[in-house]
Amino acid sequence: MSVSETNTRKVLMDGLWANNNVFVQMLGMCPTLAVSTSAANGIGMGLATMFVLLGSNTVISMIRNLIPSDVRIPTYIIVIAAFVTIIDLSMNAYVHDLHKVLGIYIPLIVANCVVLGRAEVFAARNTVFASAVDGIATGLGFSLALGILGGTREILGAGTFFGLPVTGESFHPSLVFVLPPGAFIALGFIIVGVRLINQKRKANAS
């Protein structure tokens, strides 16, 4: 993918849907499965990841021509870890309540292969602007995926959505969806749904 081929719109659509990291590329499974116990957790984690992606993609794209290729991975890791720490500290200081909810998940972002993946695949080969757009798009796509998965698990597993009860008295939430196996089951069905939608769209287009 060269600079001339990438236009902003395509980058956005790729990150958000067409090449969605969770639904299509199956990357970042660890935070996806672990954190998505509720809609709020999923989206919070997604947005925190988006800020890290925006920062790391921008900086890595800026220094991409200065880094010898043999040490690029350690360099990326340092940049990503620095951004994660900055976000961790600033959230702890200025949005303490939100940090209390998400706090334990934030250091996990360092280990999210989506962030390193975008650095290697996109930011190391594209302009600063395109990389920043890609960071936002991938981050939003990740938030979307975690939001959908978290929302599904919360509704089926606890009968609530963003903490508010949405199902009637007659609905008995099935605990398994909030527990780890539910993450795999729900994600499997959601991916089936996403594939079906994409197939239909392809059939309509041709």
């Binding site: 220094i63 200065l66 880094i67 010898p68 043999d70 040490v71 350690p74 360099t75 340092i78 940049v79 870890a81 620095a82 720490t85 900055i86 500290l89 600033s90 702890n92 200081a93 200025y94 303490h96």
Partner: peptide, 27 residues
């Protein structure tokens, strides 16, 4: 390679220590 890694590490450390000292009191 060594020099590049060292510089990257130093810059990251400097930025983090500034962030740390700025957020220490609010935290």
């Amino acid at each position: 390679m060594g020099v590049v890694l060292m510089v990257v590490g130093m810059v990251a450390t400097a930025i983090l220590s500034v962030t740390e000292s700025a957020t220490q009191k609010p935290i």
